[in-house]
Design a protein around this nucleic acid. Structure first.
Length: 687
DNA sequence: GTAGGGTTAG
């Protein structure tokens, strides 16, 4: 074209240029840009095409620089085609200000009745979070087409206004507008979000009746709806009928099966993909992590690192950090912290939250605070995670301090925040503060207390020994007390010894959750404490009859990046002989300073009666501590995670070991952290 | 003589 001079014909040059911008090759945009710079007098069409190309690129902000250049260099003013591209760029960069400027220019140029520009603006304002403005623009569209309706319906769905979206769906039909496949994609996703299978089925038949095209995206949205609403069978039927499937279809099925615990089938869909993208990996990892299989999640994460096709992203790391937190795997957790920095991944609030949570749950509260202090963006979840971290370490006053500072910085507390604040009050014995914040929830903060908040409040009162007040509090509850509420009261009765209230709490709890083994163990412990052996026997028989088993105690410890688990009396560890030798040595040392095993904990233990003397000695946390002393060099602290609450004897032993062996021990049990140092525990024996 | 807006999975 250069040789023939055709390139200097503006029309021909712009055809070549357009071809270049739609090329799928990754370097084609650079190429197009170079080409553009050689076009002598780019016309308005050419400029628009360049802006369009950048609007859907990875660098949409360029659109505004180019637009500026265009205003200076192009003899034609921007036209109705220019604005949709710029508005799209505004949505991409979430640039509310930029978009508003563009909107203003369109108005000045009297282009604000163009349906394309207005539809773009509806989408733009909604992605920037200004739903009111989106709706105002929508109402001003003189001749709404199907895209106008779709844009507004989608805006409502994405803002979580599901009822409004359904209303609009009705209204568009009332005004004679026929929904298309895009409309029904949004409406089906409303059904998925509401978990409303009935409505989902109705929309499905609506689509068939109205002969709406079953696009691949619509089929995928429908698969998503059926799996989320718990109808895997219908999802499978639809899936088998789909003429075309893509990676989204497979991922949706994968998630459906993984979330109902059918991991083998989920893996089949995972393996059936020609190439597993990062979303597929994330789906499987998070399914494992969220259903109590953190070890499998970490194994998959390791597999992912060997994969050539996908690289971990922020979502992967959030799930993986959460798995680390569950296991107390701080080596890997810290490695991920470094990984994010090294890879230059963008920090977001999700990542910050899970990193704080990981450090706090692995026992390194200082690191958690460091991450918290250095984070630039703090949303309500970041603040709440820090409050929870301080709470589980017994630092109630500091937690409340953070709660106050959060409000000073203009972040409004939500239901999660209050759960954590109340938990901080309960762990630190701050009864007055607990009462105060609970009573302020609705009137001051507009957060309606849920069952979990009542349970926390019962815990605050009960732990402090105010059993009657806690019981009265439950009786006055305006909502039905759930199992967690009775569980909190029962636990308090165990700590402070009240058989009458305990029996009532137990019965109410068992009515709601007949197979709650924790309830049986707690009541049995209370009977044992008072020497009510008939009660113990009765309960034990009832457990046998119903086939209810106590959850076995399990402690885990991370050494050199791998997690070791110990069960009660475990013999499966390769180094178990050494562990038991170490344990003998420890107990001998402890006895020399006057330690006597507290056997009251033995009598209380329902399932372990056969093991009598051995049982205490074999508690999993003792095994894990012994293993830690063997394999972790001083002065690195020993970090243990236990699935149940630590027993009184293990608690005393850990205190003594911390002094005798001059080692810090961080033990996370089901409810909180115990930081043993120089013969004392951070919980000050209030737990 | 060239063109534009809205949709699914973590």
């Amino acid at each position: 074209m250069l040789r023939t001079g055709l390139f200097f014909d503006p029309y021909s040059a712009s055809r070549l240029f357009t071809l270049c911008t739609v090329s799928p090759f990754s370097t084609s945009l650079e190429c197009a840009r170079k080409l553009f710079d050689q076009i002598p007098q780019p016309n308005i069409y050419t400029w628009n095409t360049l802006i369009r190309a950048y609007a859907s690129s990875s660098d949409p902000i360029q659109c505004f620089f180019i637009f500026n250049q265009m205003l200076c260099q192009c003899s034609d003013p921007p036209n109705k085609y220019t604005f949709p591209f710029l508005i799209k760029a505004g949505s991409e960069i979430l640039g509310l200000l930029e978009g508003q400027v563009i909107h203003g220019m369109a108005v000045k140029m009297s282009l604000d009745s163009d349906v394309f520009i207005l539809n773009s603006l509806v989408h733009f304002y909604s992605t920037c979070g200004d739903l009111d403005q989106a709706y105002k623009v929508f109402l001003m569209i003189p001749k709404k087409d199907v895209v106008s309706w779709n844009s507004m319906i989608t805006a409502f769905v994405q803002a979580g206004c599901l009822e409004e979206a359904l209303e609009l769906f009705q209204r568009m039909q009332g005004e004679g507008m026929r929904p298309n496949d895009v409309t029904t994609v949004s409406v089906i996703s409303v059904c998925a979000k509401k978990l409303n299978l009935k409505l989902g089925r109705w929309i499905h038949s609506f689509i068939e009746k109205n002969k709406i095209e079953m696009s691949l995206i619509l089929s995928n949205a429908m698969l998503d709806m059926y799996t989320k609403c718990g109808s895997l069978e219908q999802a499978k039927i639809l899936y088998d009928k789909m003429p075309e499937k893509d990676v989204v279809s497979l991922t949706t099925m994968l998630v459906g099966y993984a979330q109902s615990g059918e991991f083998a089938t989920a893996r089949k869909f995972f393996n059936a993909m020609t190439s597993q993208d990062i979303t597929a990996w994330n789906s499987l990892i998070s399914a494992y992590e969220q259903s109590g299989h953190p070890k499998e999640a970490l194994a998959l994460f390791n597999e992912l690192q060997l994969s050539k096709n996908a690289k971990p992203d922020q979502v992967t790391l959030v799930s993986t950090l959460s798995a680390c937190a569950q296991l107390g795997a701080m080596d890997l957790g810290g490695w991920i912290h470094v990984y994010v920095k090294k890879q230059g991944l963008k920090w977001n609030c999700h990542l910050t939250t899970s990193l704080i949570d990981m450090y706090a749950k692995c026992g390194d509260l200082e690191k958690a605070l460091e991450v918290f202090r250095s984070s630039k963006q703090k949303d309500v979840y970041v603040w709440s995670a820090m409050i929870a971290g301080l709470a589980m370490h017994g630092r109630g006053r500091d937690a409340i301090d953070i709660f106050v500072r959060m409000q000073e910085s203009g972040v409004k507390p939500n239901a999660v925040t209050f759960t954590n604040v109340l938990s901080a009050c309960s762990h630190a014995g701050l009864v007055e503060e607990g009462r105060l914040y609970f009573n302020q929830m609705q009137p001051v903060y507009g957060v309606t207390p849920q069952v979990k908040h009542y349970a926390c409040m019962v815990d605050v009162l009960g732990r402090a020994g105010l059993l009657e007040e806690a019981n009265g509090f439950i009786e006055k509850m305006p909502i039905i007390p759930g199992a967690s509420v009775w569980g909190a009261l029962l636990a308090a009765c165990k700590t402070h010894g009240n058989v009458g209230l305990a029996e009532n709490a137990f019965n109410r709890l068992i009515d709601l959750e007949p197979r709650n083994h924790g309830a049986y163990v707690m009541l049995s412990n209370i009977y044992a404490k008072f020497g009510l052996w008939n009660g113990v026997t009765r309960l034990r028989k009832r457990m046998r009859d119903f086939g209810i088993k106590k959850e076995p105690g399990c402690s885990s410890i991370e050494v050199d990046g791998s997690v070791h688990e110990f069960l009660v009396g475990d013999n499966s560890h390769p180094l178990c002989k050494k562990v038991y030798l170490k344990l003998d040595e420890i107990l001998l040392n402890l006895k020399s300073v006057g330690y006597i095993a507290d056997k009251s904990h033995l009598l209380q233990d329902v399932e372990e009666e056969d093991m009598k003397d051995q049982a205490l000695y074999l508690h999993s946390e003792k095994l894990a501590i012994a293993y830690g002393l063997i394999s972790i060099r001083s002065p690195v602290p020993i970090r243990i995670v236990k699935n149940l609450r630590v027993c009184g004897d293990c608690h005393s032993v850990a205190k003594l070991i911390s002094k005798l062996y001059d080692r810090e021990i961080l033990l996370r049990d089901r409810y909180r952290f115990h930081h043993f140092k120089e013969g004392n525990c951070s919980c000050m024996d209030y737990w």
